[in-house]
Each structure stands twice: as structure tokens, then as C-alpha cells.
Design a protein around this nucleic acid. Structure first.
Lengths: 182, 182
DNA sequence: ACCTGAACACCGTTCAAGT
DNA sequence: ACCTGAACACCGTTCAAGT
């Protein structure tokens, strides 16, 4: 890749992170191109679909997912505390910008999605939590990582679209945790 | 209202139901106007905001909510069966067209929404179920009608956006039911 | 090879002109 | 009082012309 192309690519991703945080995942791509100082065609050359841009934005994000999982797994106390800690972290991780929870949770069932690898990171991290809970005999039978991701994803979508505060979201996670544990 | 105005109003609502069922809640309003044989201005005169059209479409729908609640309340067997029956009915009721679950669930927390009265019908019906469960001492403390609506709404949104089949959705509702009951 | 920006298509919304 | 449809604004997307 030519140096000016690389520079444009990086600037677009950087600006997109900024614009999406401000305006949500539905922000105008024209706006992103303008702020990055490139023509709209350049943006489309690098990112033919909106999701391709999201994919690039999420590259560094994957490390944070793994970190958060490690941290949750280090939680002291009963299995329920571990699960709740992960559920809270999960919601925070996928709620980086408005529309993110919906996008990510939809992609859970679409292996052809540009962000499919990001979803695998999420379900993989959740699976570590699941294994720990299963080893402790705390998990209700039939509850697997994808089930958990769908459920907590649903809560995150509702919280995102309704601008719910943590004080409203946390009790929802508690109810779900009770449903997941025996 | 003049008779031609009334006729246009009715045709728009009828056509909107059709178009939204086919294309989802994001369908073009221009398309609706064209099929109804009116100019776009006429549509906007009657329904200044998209949600106003949704509101009109949902008038007959409210009766169905009450019917479904009655039917669920008549369920024989343990409280859990009653709850699961209602959760399934709830998902079906708000999943009339693509985007509907998100719209309705978001409006739960927005009393100024044009469809706020529709939400009250939903939470009211859920409240009847809650009362029955509470009377049987089956409900986990802190779980109220709005909590339930948010949780099951989240599942409905995920199912809607990911085109999940019933065989995937029903287990999610079971997990949630377990979390709601003691 | 890459970039630019004009151009097109589509859609929501408004409003002056009609009946 | 109500309707029509042209007009405008905005945005996504493409592509011919440039470097």
C-alpha cells in the first residue's frame, strides 16, 4: 500500500471512531470523508461497505475484550458474581457507540458478516466464563455461550436505544444471571 | 373530516400495514403514498411523523394484546407455564413487522412517544400476568412488569434483527422465565 | 495505483398552486 | 379544507478524469 493511501486509511478509521462516538453508527459517511479530508470515493475504495469500516475500527477493541474476560475470570467469590461481572463488561464492550449493540448482536448469527471475527472473539471470551461456571456445576443445563451473548446482547440493544442508565440495566442483568444459573 | 380525507386516511393506513409487513418499519413513505394513490404531502398532512402512522396502524392491534393476555391467563398448570405462554405471545405481538420490536421497546421509556398508549397497553397486560404470579408467590422479588417488558423486548429485537427461528427464540425465553421466577 | 469531486439515485419534507 | 406534485435537502454510491 502506498504511503499516502496508508495515511488516508488511518485517518479515515481515526475520524470514523470519533464521528461514530458522537453521532452513532448511522452517521453520514460523507461527514467522515469530509473530516478526514478525503473524497467520498476514497472512503469507498478502502471500505466498500459500512461494516468494513466498523471492522477496521474494532481491531484494537478485540484486545480489550480479552482483557475484560481475564479480569472477570479473576473475580473472587461465588460463580454468580463472576457471571454478573462478565455480563456488565460485555454490555460496556459492545456499547461503544449508538447502534453498536444491534450491529454486533445481529452479526452473531451471520458468519458471512465483515465483523464475524469480532463476534467470535466475544463468544470465545464468553465461552471461557461458561467453562468456569460449568466446572463449578453452577450453570443451568442448555445454557451455552451463544445463548448468553444473545440474551445480554438484547439487553444492551434495549439499553442503547432507550438510553437507559446503569441503574436500570444492572437489575436486568441480575435477572438474566439468575436464569442462567441453577 | 371530509369524506375524501377520511378515505385517503384509511387507504394510507391500510397500505402502510401492507408495505411495512413486506419491507419492515423502515420502508419508504413515498412508496406508501404512491401505492395509496395520494401525493406525499397528503401523507404528511395526516401523519407528520413516521410514528404517527405506526400509531394509527396499531389501533386494532391493541385489542389483540388484551385477547392474548386473557388467553395466557387462562393457561392451566404451574405459574412457569403461564409466564412462558405470555412471553411467547408478547414476542409475537410486537414482531408484526421488521423494526417493530425495537420501536416499541424503545418507546417503553419515552412517555412522549406517539405510541406511548400502545406501550401502556402492553405493560398493563403484562402487569396482569405479574399480579397472578405474585399472588402465587412465584415471582422473584424486584421483578415488575416494565422489567419483564424490557427483557423480553430485548429478545424480540435480537430475534427480529437476526431473523432467528422460534426454535432459537423459545429457549431464550425459558432462561428469562427462570430468572424471573423464584 | 490512488485520489478527487461531479453526477446520479433515492428518499424525506415542504409549500405554492390548485380544487 | 384538502390535495397535488414540483422543488429542495441530504446522503449513499459510482465513475470519468486527473496525478
Amino acid at each position: 500500500m502506498r504511503v499516502d493511501a496508508q495515511r488516508n486509511y488511518d485517518r479515515i478509521v481515526e475520524v470514523a471512531r470519533e464521528v461514530f462516538r458522537e453521532q452513532g453508527y448511522d452517521a453520514s459517511l460523507d461527514e467522515v470523508a469530509k473530516r478526514a479530508g478525503v473524497g467520498p470515493g476514497t472512503l469507498y475504495r478502502h471500505f466498500p461497505k459500512r461494516d468494513d469500516l466498523l471492522d477496521a475500527m474494532m481491531r484494537s477493541w478485540m484486545d480489550r475484550v480479552d482483557e475484560a474476560a481475564e479480569k472477570a475470570l479473576a473475580t473472587e467469590g461465588p460463580p454468580r458474581d463472576l457471571l454478573v461481572a462478565w455480563l456488565r463488561a460485555y454490555v460496556a464492550l459492545i456499547s461503544l457507540h449508538k447502534g453498536g449493540p444491534a450491529k454486533i448482536t445481529s452479526a452473531l448469527d451471520d458468519s458471512g458478516s465483515p465483523i464475524a471475527s469480532k463476534c467470535r472473539t466475544l463468544t470465545g471470551a464468553t465461552d471461557k466464563v461458561v467453562e468456569r461456571l460449568a466446572a463449578a456445576g453452577a450453570l443451568r443445563p442448555g445454557v451455552d455461550a451463544v445463548t448468553i451473548c444473545r440474551l445480554v446482547g438484547g439487553v444492551a440493544v434495549v439499553a442503547d436505544q432507550g438510553d437507559l442508565p446503569e441503574s436500570t440495566v444492572f437489575p436486568l442483568l441480575e435477572v438474566m444471571a439468575d436464569g442462567m444459573l441453577r
